[in-house]
């Protein structure tokens, strides 16, 4: 047995004439927690539905546990899917929702009871087994939906925007819970999200998608610190992205935006350079700009500075004294915090 849980090979997905995903290749390892990250319409949900067997690929292969399941229908794939809407059956109690799949497999009643109770226990819903879905809160519905998939012991568990319908506090709680659950059960999980913070916090590995194509894959640290493209950098919070318009002298170059240019005293062969707000130095440096806005955010101050190359975002430790709006400050875009990028793949 290989350690690949899911393998997508040259997978092409289309709705009628519209190709949503052209030729995708991706391997997901056993026990891995993978995030499919991307803006809406990037093909991540489509990819997930294809893995679950809810849509037929135009071409390509889907392997699960080393077996080609491309032509296997959804009800025989042994894949779990937690829907964004939870898709609980409103006419069945919590218990019966969880038992639904087991009953279809003609599992003996005693085993069903035992498995369902264990499943409800796992997500902390034992006391609410007899409630109808409509009588449960959003978070409880989410857990119920999770338990319903987990009792089937799926080869891989897919989750569609698992946290998006929860409020901020529940979202944090559920994040931890999903991680704990994954460690406990060792199940392979793939979840889809448009929220980079969610992906960074939860996933072992992030697959960043754009227009149906994988833009970059890597660990959260990789993606956070070392995005390779303008799109990836933008998505993980590099707010200052500039085009390198040319190297001028032996040891300097020009970065430019739509509104103007800045001369930097080092060289780069990349097509673009990017800095996080916290990578910009304020109060000293070769350049000058005017403070257009400042916001206090607890441990830091967030500045917007108007420069020759347009607006720059910079975060400064809150212990340093504040600069007022309208004042001129000097700043630096240091080489050490610059991330070289490619325009696109």
């Amino acid at each position: 047995m290989s350690d690949t849980a899911v393998s997508l090979q040259n997978l092409t997905l289309a709705y009628g004439e519209t190709v949503a995903v052209p030729s995708l290749n991706l391997d997901i390892h056993k026990g891995e927690l993978v995030a499919l990250l991307g803006p809406s319409g990037c093909g991540k949900t489509t990819t997930m539905r294809a893995i679950a067997g809810l849509m037929t690929p135009r071409s390509g292969t889907i392997m699960i546990d080393g077996v080609d399941v491309t032509k296997v229908s959804a009800n025989k794939r042994g894949v779990g899917l937690v829907f964004q809407s939870y898709a609980l059956f409103p006419h069945l109690s919590g218990f019966e929702n969880v038992a639904f799949g087991l009953r279809l497999k003609r599992t003996p009643a005693a085993v069903i009871t035992q498995k369902v109770e264990a499943g409800l226990e796992l997500v902390g819903l034992s006391h609410l087994a007899e409630r109808m879905p409509a009588e449960l809160s959003g978070g409880q519905q989410q857990r119920l939906s999770l338990a319903r998939s987990l009792v089937m012991e799926p080869k891989v568990l897919l989750l569609d925007e698992p946290l998006s319908n929860l409020d901020a506090r529940l979202r944090l709680e559920m994040r931890t819970e999903l991680q704990t659950l994954q460690r406990q059960t060792g199940i392979t999980m793939v979840f889809v999200t448009h929220d980079q913070a969610e992906a960074l916090a939860l996933a072992d590995r992030i697959v960043l998608m754009k227009d149906g194509v994988i833009e970059q894959t890597g660990t959260p640290e990789d993606l956070y610190n070392r995005p390779n493209t303008v799109f990836a950098a933008d998505f993980v919070g590099f707010e200052n992205i500039f085009k390198v318009s040319g190297n001028t002298a032996s040891n300097s170059m020009v970065i430019a935006s739509d509104t103007g240019e800045l001369n930097l005293n080092y060289r780069s062969d990349a097509s673009h350079l990017a800095w996080r707000p916290e990578g910009v130095i304020i109060g000293s440096g070769p350049h000058a700009g005017v403070v257009a806005g400042v916001a206090f955010a607890g441990n830091k101050r967030e500045y917007v500075i108007t420069t020759d190359a347009g607006k720059i975002r910079a975060d400064v430790d809150a212990s340093e004294s504040a600069v007022q709006i309208g004042e001129t400050v000097s700043f630096e875009l240091p080489e050490s915090s610059a991330r070289p990028l490619r325009e696109a793949l």
Binding site: R49, A52, G53, L54, S73, A74, N75, K76, R77, V79, G80, L81, F83, Q84, S85, A87, L88, F89, P90, H91, F100, G101, L104, K105, R148, S149, M152
Partner: peptide
């Protein structure tokens, strides 16, 4: 409700079972 039919499919229901256990009720 949205997605209950695909949900039943993924949980192993054949189309006949989707009908009798989800759509009909």
């Amino acid at each position: 409700p949205k997605d209950v039919i695909p949900a039943a499919r993924v949980l192993g229901a054949s189309w006949l079972q989707v009908f009798t256990r989800v759509i009909l009720p």
